[in-house]
Simulated assay, not measured.
Amino acid sequence: MAAGGFSRLPNGTVVVALNLPHGSAGVRVLVHARNRARALTRLRNLGLRAVYLRGNTAPPTPDEITAVLHHPDGLVWRTAPLDGTSASGLWRPIRSLLRPAALPGR
């Protein structure tokens, strides 16, 4: 389960924002999709199986919506403190978050 929210855009699509725990900090993930169910399915297909959106407590900001709409994959992330303060850093493609750690000696 994750804190987050969504915003419906004028063209009918949605941007879903989720705060997920990751290591000692957390990450803020943004997904652009046709509807909320498809956005969560996109994340589950990437291996984030236990992702649910309950309520709309932390919807995406206008700056976050702009960031995800300008990314070709429509799926980005950045670090976010778990204490609920604002996220910091650059938006990155989701591939860089899910990439397996490099094995030693390779």
Rank of each mutant, 00 (worst) to 15 (best):
M1Q: 01
A2H: 06
A3S: 12
G4W: 09
G4P: 00
G5W: 05
G5R: 11
G5N: 00
S7Q: 15
R8W: 09
L9N: 05
L9W: 12
P10I: 04
P10Y: 12
N11T: 07
V15L: 09
V15A: 13
V15E: 06
V16N: 08
A17Q: 09
L18T: 02
N19W: 07
L20Y: 07
H22M: 05
G23T: 01
S24D: 13
S24T: 06
G26K: 02
R28D: 01
L30G: 11
H32P: 08
A33P: 05
A33V: 11
A33C: 08
R34Q: 11
N35A: 09
A37D: 05
R38P: 01
R38N: 07
R38A: 13
R38I: 06
L40Q: 07
T41D: 10
R42H: 06
L43A: 01
L43G: 10
R44A: 10
R44N: 03
N45H: 13
L46S: 07
L46E: 08
A50Y: 12
V51W: 00
V51E: 10
Y52G: 02
Y52T: 11
Y52M: 06
L53M: 00
R54P: 00
G55N: 08
G55H: 04
N56G: 03
N56D: 13
T57D: 09
T57R: 12
A58T: 03
P59Q: 03
P60N: 07
T61E: 12
T61P: 02
P62I: 03
D63N: 12
E64L: 11
I65V: 15
I65P: 03
I65E: 06
A67H: 04
A67S: 14
V68L: 02
V68E: 08
L69I: 01
L69P: 03
H71V: 00
P72L: 11
P72C: 11
D73W: 05
D73C: 12
G74S: 06
G74V: 11
G74T: 13
L75T: 13
V76D: 11
V76S: 07
W77A: 01
W77G: 00
R78L: 13
R78N: 03
A80G: 05
P81E: 09
P81G: 05
P81C: 13
L82Q: 11
L82R: 08
T85Y: 03
A87I: 00
G89W: 15
W91N: 10
R92W: 02
R92S: 12
P93V: 05
P93F: 00
P93C: 12
R95A: 15
S96T: 15
L98N: 07
L98F: 02
R99E: 14
R99P: 01
R99T: 09
R99C: 02
P100V: 08
A101L: 15
A101S: 14
G105P: 01
G105I: 03
